[in-house]
């Protein structure tokens, strides 16, 4: 497990988390290279199938980072994203993946340090869960 380097796709709202990740970088606040950021206009843009495709393509974890409650630029996008994530967690159980691999966090654009902390926390959760069985399959496929 020591040589396991998780891959976590982070769907980030550009009004908050994406800017917060940028701020973390500006402050020289490190966060794991496992985090692969996908910028979204709002977390409300994310669909169930986008999260599933991230896992299907080998992500060990998914992080959805949206605005603080009550601060969504589109009023309720972050609330919809949370509901969809809850739905996806149910699907992950049915599929045979741990629901803990997917998590949502809520931060503001000023919370660069917190972004780094929460992203690191999720990477550690995923590291503890081990590599996604789907990623192993993809790697095996590439090797053969």
């Amino acid at each position: 497990m020591d040589n396991f380097h998780p891959e976590v796709v982070a769907f980030c709202c550009r009004h908050c988390a994406y800017a917060a990740a940028d701020l973390a970088g500006g402050k020289r606040q490190p966060y794991p290279s496992a985090i692969k950021i996908v910028e979204l206009p709002c977390t409300g843009r994310i669909d169930v199938v986008n999260i599933l495709h991230a896992f299907e393509d080998g992500a060990d974890g998914v992080l959805i980072a949206g605005c603080l409650d009550g601060s969504c630029h589109y009023i309720k996008g972050n609330l919809y994203a949370r509901q969809r994530l809850d739905y996806v967690r149910g699907l992950l159980c049915e599929i045979g993946l741990e629901p803990g691999r997917a998590r949502m966090i809520n931060i503001s654009a000023a919370m660069g340090v917190q972004f780094a902390e929460l992203a690191s926390e999720h990477v550690e959760t995923v590291r503890a869960l081990g590599p996604s069985p789907l990623r192993r399959k993809i790697n095996q496929g590439e090797a053969t």
Binding site: D47, V48, V49, L52, H53, F55, E56, L91, E94, I95, G96, L97, P133, L134, K137
Partner: peptide, 18 residues
């Protein structure tokens, strides 16, 4: 179409894990 894509991905993943 979204539900087709969701179910297709779910089935592919489940069977791949198995």
């Amino acid at each position: 179409s979204k539900e087709v894509a969701t179910l297709a991905a779910s089935l592919r993943m489940k069977r791949s894990i198995e």
